[in-house]
Design a protein around this nucleic acid. Structure first.
Length: 443
RNA sequence: GCCGGGGUGGGGUAGUGGGCAUCCUUGGGGACUGUGGAUCCCCGGACCCGGGUUCAAUUCCCGGUCCCGGCCCCA
């Protein structure tokens, strides 16, 4: 009879039903809590921006991957493809803010791409930035924030922190006379997706000779603790002053991250990040088992403010999409329906009973208990079924009998025991039930 | 934009060139005019769309569409 649904969800967009929305909401609440504990303040910005904000920064290739259109005033606008430019716009139009500025937001982000595992066309992103300091300590703080958020979701030890530095990569590529650095980055970025021979072939076109290709290949193919990787780089480029300076910074940052998070970050020279505006530290977090695409990515972008407003402001930040986090949390059994909250179900068998239920519900809600009224008006048997499937731990039943005796019948849904409570003593009864419930869930 | 694999009730499935299709689950109702999770009964609900082959297509062929996965890209 009903047949095909007439209106279908757009490709790459998601409907979030309670079973997914609740865990997602809890994830973001956790993230907010952690960010606030670091002194970060929440901000928000429009979902629509003038397309110029991205053109200035990223060039024309961006256009094909945004949801863009011309509005009724003839302006070219686009749904946010990333958060950073908007955050920068906000920052640079407030010169009065004392630094450091610590901000986070949870925007929706849109990208017109083919959906696949871990990627959709509209997603939530937890985005945090630190403006002002340009020290290793600042880089380490933002990375620690990201790490602590994942820890707070029960993913402790399930992810790897991969760290690199754009300046270091610049210096290395300059040292071997690569002139097309963006192209070299794009090849390095694809290192793990292509085989060694293809890498050699591609990289030869920018590196000039086989020896240089081998040098880079040797560095890019290995990831490990700072000590080990930095030693390799030093051996290969001992005489280069620029390189040893950046290596020092990488070592410091790495040591601070180890100290703050308790986890050893991996130096991974294949992590260069696609974004053109990164200027120093870049990082990525990935599933320790390598199953999913990156959980989050970020880095330092000290010149972006200058591009927008003329004055550089040191900045470091990251964006963490909700999609891969969800995959991770599901994989490790952390994507659970809901926390234990006390729910009460109100069963009414007559208009007089409904009147009593309304009063009881009000009292329950004032005491922080979820009170669900049965609105079906059906048999008590059916109402009890509803009570049961709602997950309520307690049911209040009222009808004409209760009206007579000025009371309400209370049934404990777990034990099945039932008592009658006078309406005058309802408050204290509810209070004792709350205590009992708390005790029950804590054991 | 490109490549590969798939589409049977809301979800998960069985099956067939020939009687508008199996089972589980979910939803609604009842047994149960004042007591839940069990059991039993009843009801609702599907062959993605279009064309072709055929006496006959849910089944075979072609095209489309959608979903899933991958490429590109990941700002």
């Amino acid at each position: 009879m009903s047949g095909k649904l007439k209106y279908e969800r757009l490709r790459g967009f998601r409907d979030l039903y309670p079973e997914d929305m609740e865990p997602k909401d809890r994830f973001f609440e956790n993230a907010k809590k952690v960010a606030r504990s670091f002194g970060y303040s929440m901000i928000d910005y429009p979902s629509l921006e003038s397309i110029e904000l991205y053109l200035d920064k990223s060039g024309e290739e961006l256009l094909g991957q945004t949801f863009s259109f011309t509005d009724k005033g003839g302006r070219n606008v686009t749904l946010l493809p990333e958060a950073t430019p908007s955050v920068m716009r906000m920052l640079t139009s407030r010169k009065d803010l004392p630094r450091p500025v610590r901000w986070f937001g949870i925007p929706k982000i849109w990208r017109y791409e083919e959906p696949q595992s871990g990627r959709v066309r509209e997603h939530f992103q937890f985005n945090a930035d630190l403006f002002g300091p340009d020290s290793p300590a600042a880089d380490a703080e933002i990375i620690t924030l990201a790490s602590d958020i994942l820890d707070s979701c029960g993913l402790n030890g399930k992810f790897h922190i991969k760290l690199n530095n754009r300046k270091l990569m610049d210096s290395i590529l300059e040292a071997i006379n690569v002139d097309n650095i963006p192209k070299a980055f794009s090849i390095i970025d694809r290192f793990h997706k292509i085989d060694v021979e293809e890498f050699r072939r591609s990289f030869l076109s920018v590196a000039g000779n086989e020896g240089n290709v081998d040098k880079v290949l040797d560095l890019v193919r290995e990831k490990g603790p700072a000590e080990q990787i930095c030693l390799k780089i030093e051996e290969a480029f001992a005489d280069n002053g620029n390189i040893s300076e950046t290596i020092e910074r990488l070592k410091q940052t790495s040591a601070l991250i180890r100290e703050y998070t308790g986890n050893e970050p991996y130096i991974d020279l294949s992590v260069v990040r696609g974004l053109s505006y990164y200027t120093g530290t870049v990082f990525e977090f990935s599933d320790a088992e390598g199953q999913f695409r990156s959980i989050l990515g970020g880095g330092r972008y000290d010149s972006l403010a200058g591009n927008i407003s003329g004055t550089d402001i040191p900045a470091v930040g990251f964006g963490m999409g909700d999609v891969v986090v969800e995959l991770m949390m599901k994989k490790y059994g952390k994507w659970n329906a809901s926390e234990n909250i006390m729910k009460a179900y109100l069963v009414s068998t007559s208009p007089a009973g409904t009147h009593i239920c309304l009063k009881v519900a009000k009292s329950l809600r004032e005491n922080g208990i979820v009170a669900i009224s049965d609105l079906s008006g059906r048999s008590i048997s059916n109402q009890m079924k509803n009570a049961s499937s709602s997950g309520a731990s307690i049911a209040f039943i009222a009808g004409d009998r209760e009206k007579e005796s000025h009371s309400v019948t209370v049934k404990d849904m777990q034990t099945g025991s039932q008592t009658s409570v006078k309406l005058e003593s309802l408050e204290s009864f509810v209070f004792s039930k709350i205590q009992e419930f708390r005790q029950r869930i804590s054991t």
